[in-house]
Amino acid sequence: MKEIATPTRTKEIVERYNLKAKKSLGQNFMVDAQLLGKMVDHTGLTERDGVIEVGPGIGALTEQLAKRAKKVIAYEIDQRLLPVLDDTLSSYDNVDIRHEDFLKSDLTQVFKKDFSDVDNVYAAGNLPYYVTTPILMRFLEERLPIETLTVLIQKEVGDRLAAKPSTKAYGSLSIAAQYYAETEVISAVPPQAFMPRPNVDSSIITFRIRKEKAVQVNDEAFFFKCIRASFAQRRKTLRNNLNHWLGDKERVTEALGRSEIDGARRAETLSIQEFGKLADALNS
Rank of each mutant, 00 (worst) to 15 (best):
R266L: 02
V110H: 08
R208M: 07
N218G: 14
G171Y: 06
A221Y: 09
L242S: 01
L89P: 02
L85E: 03
V131D: 02
V118M: 05
E254F: 12
A214K: 11
R48M: 15
I58F: 08
E53G: 01
I227T: 03
L152T: 01
V185Q: 09
K164L: 13
Q27V: 04
R235W: 02
S187H: 04
F231I: 01
P191C: 14
K168I: 07
R235T: 03
D49M: 09
Q154V: 14
I4A: 10
I205G: 01
T133W: 10
T6S: 15
K71H: 13
D117W: 15
D41P: 00
I73L: 10
P165D: 03
E3Y: 04
F231K: 02
L89C: 13
P56L: 05
G276V: 08
A176T: 06
P196D: 11
I186T: 07
C226R: 00
G276P: 03
L278G: 07
Y92C: 08
M137Y: 15
E182S: 11
V118K: 04
A60F: 02
N243G: 04
E254S: 11
R234I: 08
F115T: 01
V54F: 02
T183S: 01
T46R: 03
L36A: 07
I175E: 03
V51I: 08
K71T: 05
R208H: 11
I146P: 01
R239A: 12
V151C: 12
M137R: 14
N28P: 08
N243Q: 04
L161T: 00
A181Q: 05
K113Y: 14
N240E: 15
T269N: 14
S284K: 09
E156Q: 08
G50L: 11
V95I: 14
L282G: 04
L65C: 08
R16L: 11
Y129I: 01
K20V: 14
